[in-house]
């Protein structure tokens, strides 16, 4: 799979975690691909942390580039059922546990579910934006990312970069498999049959626990 295929493959699998009516916050990049893979009977309410609950489709008619943007600064619009909110309301929604699921990428995740995705000291200091609040407040935190960084494991025993949050992640979805964070460690529940279990473990620093109900990713 090339990079684009990997992203779509991961997004397609994450889409299966969504339930009808879920309030969902999607991080920039890969997570924004998820809505296109939702089955027709699953409608989610997409929340954008800078001020929309229930985004709609931007068209030539409704675009207002100087008045409505999403968290990437790209034009967005509230759907007819949606609304615009201020930042206090938005983060009350997020921290208060009213967001069912957030999906975001990460630089590192560890076996306790801690994650690091906002800073590489000395290199990249973009800032945490809303990520720290989202992973602390959302009911379910899904990390959707490539399994390794050019072969270097990103799923670690312990994160090395400054953390975004401690023990916050519930599920990791990569092109190699689906992993749940459990009190015992990282449980591999699904695997991509393009890889052997040995290859998946070799690409993972943390020790994987193989689920007795292990299934192929579909």
């Amino acid at each position: 799979m090339d990079k684009e295929e990997i992203k779509s493959f991961i997004a397609k699998r994450v889409a299966k975690e969504m339930h009808d009516g879920d309030v969902v916050n999607l991080g920039i990049g890969l997570p924004t691909l998820i809505p296109q893979f939702l089955p027709p009977d699953i409608h989610v309410i997409i929340q954008v942390e800078n001020g929309v609950i229930g985004t709609g489709t931007v068209t030539d008619e409704n675009i207002i580039p100087h008045h409505a943007v999403d968290s990437s600064g790209v034009p967005t619009v509230a759907a007819p059922h949606g609304c615009y909110i201020d930042s206090n309301t938005s983060f009350s929604l997020i921290r208060g546990g009213h967001v069912d699921c957030t999906v975001l990428g990460s630089l590192e995740v560890d076996e306790k579910g801690s994650l690091a995705n906002w800073i590489i000291p000395g290199k990249k200091v973009p800032g945490m934006g809303g990520a720290m609040d989202l992973v602390v407040g959302a009911k379910k935190v899904i990390v959707a990312m490539e399994h390794t960084n050019k072969g270097k494991p990103k799923i670690l025993k312990k994160c090395t970069l400054p953390l975004t949050a401690v023990e916050a992640v519930d599920l990791i979805v990569t092109e190699m498999g689906v992993m749940e964070i459990t009190p015992e460690g990282i449980l591999l529940t699904e695997y991509n049959p393009e890889f052997t279990l040995e290859q998946i473990q070799a690409a993972t620093e943390a020790q994987l626990i193989i689920s007795p109900n292990l299934k192929p990713m579909v």
């Binding site: 001020g51 509230a78 201020d86 930042s87 206090n88």
Partner: peptide, 12 residues
């Protein structure tokens, strides 16, 4: 009265 997402931080 604000349009779109422009109310974000301004309200506070």
């Amino acid at each position: 009265w604000y349009k779109g997402t422009t109310r974000c931080f301004s309200v506070a």
